[in-house]
């Protein structure tokens, strides 16, 4: 397997990539750089930053609103920097980094739900039309057109916003990203049993939310 053939920006692919291979760019590998940072060469964090910033951006962009990505990535790298002494090199650095990013996103949503700051925008006529066009046997290519893609994403956000932070993360990682239960549990720091217990009810909730869309077909909320 060569890096050039693997799309490293999808979390699932990156995760698999991380399992067996140390991801290196440039002269030093991650562990050497981290040792150097820990011994006082804090400037070397820039190498880590440049190596993984796009990767972190891509993880965060899948969970948080677009306008939040830069701020969230900033916080993630601060967390990473502060947690460097606890990095044990038992798993590749990239995977350790992705865990911090995923858990940041989970914390973000938990805080938002706690403060009741989750946007609960209503659906419009455009969204109802989108539902109608999905149901009218259009080809997959049809929905990937720019204007319909935007509406699809808005409907997806609307549906995810109706879930709890826990359900949201489980749905995103397990169902949308198609990660395994073990991978999901590991990324979120939960037990495998906890993820298994949540998986089915979360999916059921999502389907119920989608069903409510069908009731609005032809009209809007």
């Amino acid at each position: 397997m060569t890096y050039s053939t693997v799309p490293v920006y999808g979390l699932q692919q990156s995760f698999s990539l991380c399992l067996g291979v140390q991801y290196t760019l440039g002269d030093q590998n991650d562990d050497e750089i981290i040792q150097s940072i820990l011994s006082g060469n804090t400037d070397e964090f820039e190498v880590i930053l440049k190596r993984y910033d796009q990767y972190v951006f891509n993880i965060i962009a899948k969970h948080l609103p677009r306008e939040m990505v830069e701020e969230a990535a900033h916080e993630v790298f601060i967390r990473v920097y502060k947690a460097l002494p606890s990095y044990r090199a038992e798993a590749p650095f990239k995977y350790w980094l992705s865990k911090i990013a995923e858990r940041y996103c989970y914390d973000y949503w938990r805080e938002k739900y706690k403060a009741k700051e989750v946007p609960m925008a209503s659906l419009t006529d455009d969204h109802s039309q989108w539902v109608e066009s999905v149901l009218s046997d259009q080809s997959q290519k049809h929905f990937e057109k720019e204007e319909l893609l935007r509406e699809s994403k808005e409907v997806l956000q609307w549906a995810l916003n109706k879930l709890t932070a826990e359900d949201r993360m489980v749905i995103t990682l397990l169902y949308l990203e198609e990660l395994s239960v073990k991978e999901t549990a590991d990324l979120l720091g939960w037990s495998v049993v906890n993820v298994k217990v949540r998986a089915h009810p979360s999916r059921k909730k999502l389907r119920k939310i989608i069903s409510s869309l069908l009731g609005q077909e032809g009209g809007h909320q």
Binding site: A61, R66, Q140, F143, E144, L149, S152, V155, A159, L176
Partner: peptide
């Protein structure tokens, strides 16, 4: 919706 999720723009 799943298809839309996978078509994420790169920031």
């Amino acid at each position: 919706l799943k298809s839309a999720y996978r078509k994420n723009d790169r920031i």
